[in-house]
Design a protein around this nucleic acid. Structure first.
Length: 271
DNA sequence: AATCCCACCTGAACGC
DNA sequence: TGCGTTCAGGTGGGAT
């Protein structure tokens, strides 16, 4: 569920409601996420005013004068903004952050691969410090990708999924962008030419931007009490389409496994 | 340093 | 209907 576009859409969907609101309570029903939720949150957060919600990779940073709440949604997590009457928590609704005694930001995560952390210097946090560039920022460009590709012998797909190099592309969009750039996910990164890197960079940015727009549409009714965050209905060219005809050339889409993740590609138009 | 595999979890889909 | 198996959008940690 949470790819970078959905994390960004989540941020956009809650920022205007919560920025300048004040934490008044925290209810932790299940502290066992990927790492234990720091118990001192209950002491620290109440009274803190939320200044700004930022995103770094797929981490959301809730900045307050005392420090930052860091939230990662893992594979199955989502945030809901609920107002009165607050519905009963469902089975996997692990944490409620209460603002101004009325608004509730609820964290739900069935698989519990997500994380809720606290840091006074979030960008220096051990999990955030080693992260590579943001794919939608200028620092991610064809020159940068080409230089990185030249010095790596792993597959180009593995390179795109390596968070020390570029963050947040995710499995679906790595597949989609490689398809649109007509590059085989199996190619060694160091065999890509400058023009291919230029095209790939462009397709990654386009794919992510389109998905953010689509995510924005389906997540509009965020505050609906029982609203599950939808999954954007985006046109997927290859992801999840094993054995179905390629939209470009009709050749059946192949499904293989790379780094224990599903890779989908068209062996006829991706070389 | 770079690369790869494992692990962490639950639930849905599938096959028998 | 029921039960076992497989797979899933992420990613840090550790082995090689």
């Amino acid at each position: 569920m949470p790819e970078l576009p959905e994390v960004e859409t989540t941020r956009l969907g809650i920022a205007s409601q919560l920025e300048t609101a004040t934490f008044t309570d925290v209810q932790i029903r299940q502290p066992k996420l990927r790492w234990p939720i720091p118990s001192q949150l209950k002491k620290i957060l109440p009274g803190q005013t939320l200044q700004r919600i930022e995103r770094r990779a797929k981490y959301l940073l809730f900045n307050t004068p005392a420090g930052s709440l860091i939230i990662h949604l893992g594979m199955s997590g989502y945030l809901q903004l609920l107002s009165s009457p607050i519905p009963e928590p469902t089975k996997h609704a692990h944490v409620d952050f209460i603002f101004d005694h009325t608004l509730c930001l609820r964290y739900t995560d069935p698989r519990r691969f997500g994380a809720i952390l606290w840091s006074t210097k979030p960008l220096q946090h051990r999990l955030l410090k080693p992260l590579g560039v943001e794919p939608l920022e200028r620092a991610f460009n064809s020159q940068m990708l080409y230089q990185q590709a030249m010095k790596h012998r792993c597959s180009i797909k593995a390179l795109l999924m390596n968070s020390h190099i570029v963050v947040g592309i995710g499995n679906i969009y790595a597949n989609e962008a490689l398809h649109l750039a007509q590059i085989s996910p199996l190619r060694s990164a160091n065999t890509l030419g400058e023009v291919e890197c230029q095209n790939l960079t462009k397709q990654i940015k386009l794919t992510l931007r389109r998905a953010i727009k689509a995510g924005g549409t389906t997540l509009k009714d965020f505050r609906q009490t029982n609203g599950k965050p939808g999954y954007f209905k985006q046109k997927l060219w290859v992801y999840g389409r094993a054995d179905q005809p390629c939209h470009h050339c009709q050749h059946p889409i192949h499904k293989i496994v790379q780094l224990q993740r599903a890779t989908y590609y068209c062996p006829a138009c991706q070389n």
